[in-house]
Simulated scan of single mutants.
Amino acid sequence: MRVFVIGGTTADPTEPMFKTQKALLEQACYQLGCSLGTAGHSVIVCSPFENSADIEVMRGFAETLPPRPAIEIHYPDSQRVNSQFNEVLSRFQISTVSRYPYPPPQVETREAFQYAWLLCQLNAIERSHLTIAIGGKPDGAANMLLLIAEGKQKPLLPISFLGGAASQSFYRRRYELTDRLGEDIDALQDSQSINKIVYLAERLVDRRSTSTVKIKGNRPNFFISYPRARPAEADYVETILRRRNMVVFRDETDFGAGYDIPRKIQEAVFSADVFVALWCREYACSPWCFDEMELALEKHAQSQLELWIFCVDDTRIIPRRARDLVFYQIKSRDELEGRIVTLLERMENTNSKK
Rank of each mutant, 00 (worst) to 15 (best):
R2M: 12
V3I: 15
G7S: 06
G7H: 11
T9F: 12
T10Y: 10
A11E: 05
P16I: 00
Q21K: 13
Q21V: 00
L24C: 03
L25H: 02
L25A: 03
Y30R: 14
Y30K: 10
Y30H: 15
L32W: 14
L32S: 14
A39N: 07
S42P: 11
C46P: 01
C46K: 07
N51H: 08
S52C: 06
D54T: 00
I55F: 00
E56T: 04
E56H: 05
M58H: 02
F61M: 01
A62S: 09
E63R: 07
T64R: 12
P66A: 08
D77P: 02
D77H: 06
R80K: 06
R80Q: 04
V81F: 01
N86A: 08
N86V: 06
F92C: 06
T96R: 14
S98L: 13
Y102H: 14
P104D: 00
V107T: 13
R110V: 02
L119C: 10
L119R: 05
L119P: 01
C120W: 03
E126T: 11
R127G: 02
H129R: 15
L130D: 09
T131Q: 03
T131F: 15
G136T: 04
G136P: 04
K137P: 01
G140R: 07
G140Y: 13
A141N: 14
G151V: 00
L157G: 02
L157A: 04
S160V: 12
G163F: 07
G164D: 08
Q168D: 09
S169A: 15
R174V: 02
Y175A: 13
E176R: 09
L177I: 07
G182D: 04
I185G: 10
L188A: 03
S191R: 06
Q192P: 05
I194S: 07
V198I: 08
Y199N: 15
D206Y: 12
R208G: 09
S209I: 10
S211L: 08
S211I: 05
S211P: 01
T212I: 10
I215S: 01
P220G: 13
F222C: 08
F222S: 01
F223K: 04
F223N: 08
P231H: 09
A232Q: 13
E233V: 01
D235M: 11
I240R: 15
M246W: 12
V248R: 12
F255V: 07
G258D: 08
I265S: 09
A268M: 10
A272M: 06
V276G: 14
A277I: 01
A277P: 11
A277T: 04
A277S: 14
L278R: 05
R281C: 10
Y283C: 11
A284G: 09
P287D: 10
W288F: 02
F290W: 03
M293I: 06
E294C: 08
A296Q: 12
A296V: 08
A296H: 03
K299R: 15
Q304R: 13
F310H: 07
D314W: 03
R316D: 15
P319F: 04
F327L: 04
I330C: 10
G338Y: 11
T342A: 15
M347A: 09
N349S: 14
N351P: 02
N351I: 07
